[in-house]
Design a protein around this nucleic acid. Structure first.
Ligand SMILES: [Zn+2]
Length: 220
DNA sequence: ATGATTTGACCCGC
DNA sequence: GCGGGTCAAATCAT
């Protein structure tokens, strides 16, 4: 039983890596289409737009699958990749030596993204799901600072928060300021998903029964 | 219809 | 009053 779960975990992480890969390649494809669209190297503009539309459908299919896994309680971490790395920052140690309780839960990291992915901040690369709740221009910074909180704040009272602000000097660097650690559980949703699976199976049966009955009814 | 993002308003400490 | 952080209504996406 225990072993089966370990095996499942490993298989799931391979599946998730593959999904990330598909998502990434599709993003490359979309960028390529954008480029071609700009240069109008297509004879038909409609054809180009159709390709872009289909590619975006593929992308959202990958993203939907990933988010379904995530909301089912699986850790959907971005796999280690040569062009995308997350470096822990040094100063996370003892700037919090004062009387502050909360500050002990603060740390920084620098997320570097590949040059093609500079437009959108790398919010989900840590495997947690976040909700943006604010954005602000900060003095001396050209890029706005984005404020994110854990998506399970209401459902599980998780108070984890982070701020992202693209670096002015190197736009491929996104310094992240974490505030608070996650108290949300990933195990509970997994248990629930097992229950749901059972329900889904019976629902399916019912659905099939209903369908068969309807087919039968149509025949007669 | 539901859920997520956007964005100006609002709040709080200095 | 000013700058940084959060709220929430309007808007956007699915
Ligand atoms: Zn959390």
């Amino acid at each position: 039983m225990e072993e089966a779960i370990i095996t499942l975990r490993r298989q799931m992480s391979e599946i998730i890596s593959e999904l990330w890969h598909g998502k990434e390649v599709t993003e490359q494809l979309i960028r390529k289409y954008d480029h071609q669209h700009l240069n109008q190297s297509y004879s038909s503009l409609h054809e180009s737009e159709t390709h872009q539309f289909l590619a975006s459908k593929i992308l959202s299919s990958f993203e939907k699958t990933l988010s379904m896994l995530s909301s089912s309680g699986f850790m959907v971490c971005y796999p280690i990749h040569p062009t995308t790395t997350s470096l822990p920052d040094q100063d996370c140690t003892e700037q919090c030596s004062k009387k502050r309780k909360i500050s002990s839960l603060r740390w920084n990291e620098q997320v570097r993204v590949c040059p093609g992915r500079v437009e959108r901040p790398p919010v989900a690369v840590d495997g947690h799901s976040w909700r943006k709740y604010g954005q602000k221009q900060i003095l001396g910074g050209n890029f706005p600072r984005g404020y994110y909180r854990c998506a399970h704040r209401d459902s599980q009272g998780c108070l984890a928060t982070k701020q992202l602000q693209q670096s002015d000097h190197d736009p491929t660097i996104f310094p992240v300021n974490h505030r608070g650690t996650h108290t949300c559980s990933h195990l509970e949703p997994i248990m629930i998903s097992v229950e749901e699976l059972r329900d889904l199976k019976s629902d399916h049966r019912h659905h099939h029964q209903q369908q068969q009955e309807m087919e039968r009814a149509r025949v007669f």
